[in-house]
Write a protein that binds this DNA or RNA. Sequence first.
DNA 1: CCCTTTACTGGAAACGTTTCTAATTTAAGT
DNA 2: ACTTAAATTAGAAACGTTTCCAGTAAAGGG
Lengths: 348, 348
Amino acid sequence: MAKKRVQGPNQPSNIHDVAARAGVAISSISRVLSGHPDVSESMRLKVEKAAAELGYEPDFLAQSLRRGATKTVGFIIRDISNPFFGVIAQYCEKELRKFGYSMFLMISDEDTQTEAENITQLRRRRVDGLIASLVSEDAPHLKESLEKLKCPVVLLDRELPGFAASAVIGNHHQGVQDAVADLIKRGHTRIAFISGSTKVYTTRDRLKGFKAAFKAANLPVPNDLIALNKFDADYGQWETLRMFSLASPPTALITGSVGSTSGALRALKSLKLTPGKNIALVAIDEWPMFDVYGGDLSSVYRNPEVIGREAAKVLLETLAGGKARKVVVDTKYIARGTSSGGLAKKRG
Amino acid sequence: MAKKRVQGPNQPSNIHDVAARAGVAISSISRVLSGHPDVSESMRLKVEKAAAELGYEPDFLAQSLRRGATKTVGFIIRDISNPFFGVIAQYCEKELRKFGYSMFLMISDEDTQTEAENITQLRRRRVDGLIASLVSEDAPHLKESLEKLKCPVVLLDRELPGFAASAVIGNHHQGVQDAVADLIKRGHTRIAFISGSTKVYTTRDRLKGFKAAFKAANLPVPNDLIALNKFDADYGQWETLRMFSLASPPTALITGSVGSTSGALRALKSLKLTPGKNIALVAIDEWPMFDVYGGDLSSVYRNPEVIGREAAKVLLETLAGGKARKVVVDTKYIARGTSSGGLAKKRG
DNA sequence: CCCTTTACTGGAAACGTTTCTAATTTAAGT
DNA sequence: ACTTAAATTAGAAACGTTTCCAGTAAAGGG
């Protein structure tokens, strides 16, 4: 004897319940509800009525399993407590939502191991696409594990040669070059650059701009003032302190992330140096309420809302059958009070 | 003729492939891989070998559908660009991850409509549990839609009478009361309080502390300086400006969120008032690098790492069969430079 | 040596959908 | 009225698992 499912008092109803109520086959329910063209008007009415009466909601898991699509996009972020990334994620989610996609957010915590786990997890959960801000371009087996995903990927500010991913990349060198050029024009030659590892595109592109500015001014690049290893505050703080213990310390500083900037500011505070007075400082990236918290910080600005939104758009395009492509988001040097200061004539 | 699935070159293999390779039934594969006790050693070896050779990974969707559990926890957050929330989410995720759960993050953007959509979405995706920072306690049909989820819920700083949810709530009144008491002791009576709506527990509890401090000092509560409506920066800015246009403006300010604080600071800047000099200011909630960006801001502190971690722990407990319960996280008034200033004797 | 228990294993029925195929109804053409 | 095509619909086979149930083999007891 077949064990029939008993529709409890307020158990969610399934497609069979609706079919029974409407007196039609379950395939018809599916067709009506998923907007298949081959349905008569009378059938549509019957089914919609029954579905409404039962408060029927199709099971997403079953749909996903059968359809082979989850309407879910993975988003791998390195650090969610950084509001710059938070804003990117926020606007990305907003855009995806418009098109019926949900965002599965995974945090890598700047760790390649965790990142690898995240990719695995997203694969097993069968996301339809992935947007990722990767920790490093040469993490072990990175390309393989992304390929194994077998779904469109959008990289944020990373390049993986030989892997056909879309990307949203910043025009970093432009902003940095303008910033450095301005500092040089103001008389600086000892300009420090503190940012993350050159194993990410972001840093390489910035370094390009940094060097280009010196070259354009016919000046030697101050290699001893280039510290490229990590984006976090501790590193920024440490390197700032180290550089000011050099025989010839920097007179200006460019910091490559919200973290680097924070660390540098903390270090400068402890050194009793005030940006805009006895040291020049240009922060790369602004964050919410920058006017309030950034003091009068000069910056190399890029718009996180645009980045988030574009990432979503490019991915959706690919999901709709489009080809992978790259979007370039520009960066802009914004000179403010802290572009001044730090030069000998103004010292002490 | 049955259409047999052709195992393509590098198509992911399924349980049938493994069964075929090992020469056993698919049920045995499942038993071995899910650690069922009734398996012989030889069977275990055979299956593990075959699975490893094929690089088999069970399909999460199919597992979820069959098991009725998704190993996924929904996390509804109001504003991801607020780093205070970001940190909560981060530590919550970290804790859930340890126990094999993934976090599905949805952003409400301070909007009850979006929040409702998020709840629906999470229900359809069959999350095993929900952690939520709700926009308002009296959003339409809130309780019903949470009940409909039929899974454990952990509320962050909210109370829904009659709904059996766990909760992580801050001991807000304590910190605020201490802060206000200190300000009163320093001579303030015109103390403003700007925070979110009383439709959330957080605000009500803070208001309790605010009033208690005045009562303890035998002073009337300055009702005209209480502005409780929204947590965002615009509201904070606007209300600050409004209050300083009053005949009798405040001499001290307490702001109820990162947003409120930011808005107030922006307003004060435009009014050419400096916290710690011609106005006293206590911020509720700190955020990353507060020492650098908060200037010398006094605060009512609570630990977002603890909040995130505890939320996860309580939820996991309930998922493991435990009863719903509440966790109280304490808040602490930390007096710094901006607790001074603003009193007549020190004025212009 | 037979019977009962125990330890394992295979087969099949779920889980809740979508989609293919075949069958039915309806309309259209002569 | 009769055939053919078009429009709908029902039924069944997927999707990839887990788990129930029955069955087999080995082990133990008399």
